[in-house]
C-alpha cells in the first residue's frame, strides 16, 4: 500500500504527472481548481498506487509527496 499527497497550491495543472504515471491512475479533477485557477489532479484509484514516485519525480513544481509502507520495495 502506498499513497500520494498533493500539495495542490503548488500545482500548475501541466499534466506531466498524469502522463508519467505507469498505472494511469491520475487525472485532472473535474470540478476543482486551486487558488491560482489551475485544474487540480486527483488519484482515481489510490489502491493501485505502488509508490513508485514517478509522478513526483516528473512534477516540475514538487507538488507530490509519496508514502510507502515500511519495508515495501520501490515500485512493488
Amino acid at each position: 500500500m502506498a499513497r500520494t499527497v498533493f500539495h495542490e497550491e503548488f500545482c500548475k495543472g501541466c499534466g506531466l504527472c498524469i502522463e508519467a504515471c505507469p498505472k494511469k491512475i491520475l487525472a485532472f479533477a473535474e470540478h476543482r481548481l486551486n487558488h491560482k485557477g489551475y485544474q487540480a489532479v486527483d488519484c482515481l484509484r489510490p489502491e493501485e498506487c505502488t509508490g513508485c514516485a514517478i509522478c513526483a519525480r516528473t512534477c516540475p513544481d514538487v507538488v507530490i509527496d509519496v508514502y510507502r509502507e515500511a519495508g515495501q520495495a520501490e515500485g512493488s
Binding site: R3, C14, R57, C59, P60, V66, R68, A70, E74
Partner: peptide
C-alpha cells in the same frame, strides 16, 4: 509508512514563477 519522496531541504517552499510544464522546476 514512510515518506519516500518529498520536497528537498535545499529548495525553499516558495512556489516558482515558471510556466506550467516548464522543466526548470524539475
Amino acid at each position: 509508512e514512510k515518506l519516500v519522496f518529498s520536497r528537498p531541504e535545499a529548495l525553499t517552499d516558495m512556489p516558482t514563477h515558471y510556466c506550467p510544464g516548464c522543466h526548470h522546476g524539475i
